[in-house]
């Protein structure tokens, strides 16, 4: 699958800034037309501290901030990519893992196409709560494409969750196992891959549905 190296960043929902770093590759422009572009809304869910914000930042900015900071409410970034020669705008919503923000959840999840359930492979607990995230936050699980992302693969010695395949199939119905990956937001392992894969799966699924 081809993946565009182009990107555009929109830092905040409140102030979309079109002027920042608009750098379109030629191949992309040839396929131009904003209207034909598909919009893919991806939400990142998971316990606090598993690295949702870091994953998003790594994917969009190729950066890893050492800063340790809880997310307030929700935040989103967009990135333009080519998935199977289709220009796609990925809108990635980073949600707050804090319980107190969960009441806001539904508002953010509206209209989402895909949901990436993030957990920390060094924390069994974060893996266990993936199910509750899926069930509690998503009202119509069938409308969503679920993907599991096991983060912090760079930490070797404390690994608690060894294989995603261990997933209980009943609990995790609807999860695209083949698209689920172990990633590292810190050194970028598989991050781009995982997101592209996720986008492709979602698009394919949509095609099948419609």
């Amino acid at each position: 699958m081809g993946c565009g190296n182009s990107q555009e960043e929109v830092p905040k929902a409140s102030a979309p800034n079109l002027l920042e770093k608009a750098d379109y590759s030629e191949s992309y422009i040839r396929n131009k037309s904003v209207i034909n572009r598909k919009l893919l809304k991806v939400i990142l869910l998971g316990d606090s501290g598993v690295g949702k914000s870091s994953l998003m930042n790594q994917y969009v900015h190729q950066q890893f901030a050492a800063e340790y900071k809880a997310t307030i409410g929700a935040d989103f970034l967009t990135k333009h990519v080519m998935i199977d020669n289709v220009p796609v705008t990925m809108q990635i919503w980073d949600t707050a893992g804090q319980e107190r923000f969960q009441s806001l959840g539904v508002a953010f999840y509206r209209g989402a196409d895909c949901c990436a359930l993030v957990f920390d492979i060094n924390s069994e607990k974060s893996f266990d709560s993936v199910t509750s995230w899926k069930e509690a936050q998503i009202q119509n699980p069938h409308d969503f494409c679920f993907v599991l992302l096991g983060n912090k693969v760079d930490i070797e010695n404390q690994r608690q969750v060894l294989k995603i395949q261990r997933v209980n199939p009943l609990m995790m119905s609807g999860v695209q196992k083949e698209s689920s990956q172990l990633v590292s937001a810190k050194n970028g392992t598989c991050v781009v891959d995982a997101f592209d894969c996720l986008a492709a799966t979602t698009l394919n699924r949509d095609d099948l549905v419609s």
Binding site: A70, I72, G73, R100, A107
Partner: peptide, 24 residues
């Protein structure tokens, strides 16, 4: 303290109408 404030903010201070938009 900033991190703690993010975690505790709404637990300690809440408005009576409990409106998510206002809260945000």
């Amino acid at each position: 303290s900033n991190n703690l404030a993010i975690v505790f903010g709404n637990n300690l201070l809440r408005s009576v109408e409990n409106d998510p938009a206002r809260m945000l």
